[in-house]
């Protein structure tokens, strides 16, 4: 288990506002790490710091052994960043964009052409290769944007909200891209606001809230951290009327059923594993404590997490 990204105590403030309040993070080589958090949590700032765009105020970080502060050029040799807005050249064609990155990577003309053709094909852009990027759809732009980061393959790839603003189809296509990159050994740190995305792609997830990582673990670990199982009551229309998390014990299950009775709810009762939504809401609600969330409307215990009337996948 080699550490590809090692972040220790990174802090950053803009003016008087602390954006990152001490981030510690380790990402194992060849894995996907998802930074999950609401808008303004500091995801982009952290990615910008790790990709040498912005200097941290305090703390240190190493990317594949290169120290961020002492050897930023070394870091740049090891990484690529695909930022939030598609940083592609609109007036150039897709092929020209790729060849431009190829020359900047020092590829010779023949190797550059070959690599461009490969990437166009692998990202499904061959037909649009000679069209100006201006004419591309959002999904095509995003694919090109990521392809531009892969002209030479980085050891670490940063993807800042790679699927924000994409339609479902484009999102699924990008997920495939990310999975194949991982399969071939690239370490990926991505940020996302979508729980499902983190759940689908990440080996480990860090939940970022107000500049702190409030929870970190595998998707399964995070789900377990909010409780064993959730008792849900569904109405005749299939809508979730009420949910009570339990620690999975007989006692807690009985208490949960009593609580449902006490509310006079009728419907079918089912048990489900907690979803990442539960984790996310518990951890990122403004008034939530990092270790849990209790709803005063119920009496199932102080460390319980209760949500009502929401639909879950």
């Amino acid at each position: 288990m080699t550490t590809a990204i090692d972040v220790q105590g990174v802090t950053k403030s803009f003016g008087r506002q602390a954006v990152l309040a001490g981030i510690d993070l380790r990402v194992t080589r060849g894995t996907v790490f998802a930074l999950l958090g609401p808008n303004g949590a500091g995801k982009t700032t952290l990615v910008n710091i790790l990709s040498t765009l912005v200097q941290a105020d305090g703390g240190s970080a190493r990317i594949e052994g290169a120290d961020l502060r002492r050897d930023p050029v070394g870091v740049r040799r090891r990484i690529r960043l695909t930022g939030q807005s598609a940083a592609v050249d609109e007036l150039l064609t897709g092929a020209e964009n790729l060849r431009m990155m190829g020359s900047l990577a020092g590829l010779r003309a023949i190797a550059n052409r070959r690599r461009t053709a490969e990437l166009l094909q692998q990202f499904g852009l061959t037909d649009a290769a000679d069209k100006p990027v201006k004419a591309y759809s959002g999904g095509m732009r995003r694919r090109l944007d990521i392809a531009l980061s892969l002209v030479t393959v980085p050891q670490v790839l940063f993807l800042d909200e790679p699927t924000t603003g994409l339609d479902l189809r484009s999102r699924l296509e990008l997920w495939d891209v990310i999975r194949s990159l991982r399969a071939e050994g690239t370490t990926i740190l991505l940020t996302t606001q979508y729980l499902e995305e983190a759940d689908q792609l990440a080996d480990r997830i860090g939940v970022l809230r107000q500049g702190r990582i409030v929870a970190e673990g595998t998707p399964t670990e995070l789900k377990q951290s909010v409780g064993g199982e959730v008792v849900e009551v569904r109405g005749s229309d299939g809508r979730v009327l009420h949910e009570v998390p339990t620690d999975g014990s007989v006692h807690a299950l009985r208490a949960a059923l009593d609580a449902i009775d006490a509310r006079g709810l009728t419907g079918t009762v089912g048990l489900r594993r907690p979803s990442l939504d539960d984790v996310f809401l518990a951890l990122t609600e403004p008034d939530a404590e990092p270790n849990g969330h209790s709803d005063p409307r119920t009496d199932t215990g102080a460390d319980a997490l209760v949500t009502t009337g929401r639909n879950h996948r």
Binding site: M100, G106, L107, R115, L150, E173
Partner: peptide, 28 residues
């Protein structure tokens, strides 16, 4: 989508002098 990064070309440690200028002049 398979073999995304198969046989990626390796980049030289140092770019020949003026590579950036040539690339960006061509672009502009």
């Amino acid at each position: 989508m398979t073999a995304l990064i198969a046989a990626p070309p390796s980049a030289p440690a140092r770019l020949p002098l003026g590579t950036e200028e040539r690339t960006f002049i061509a672009r502009s």
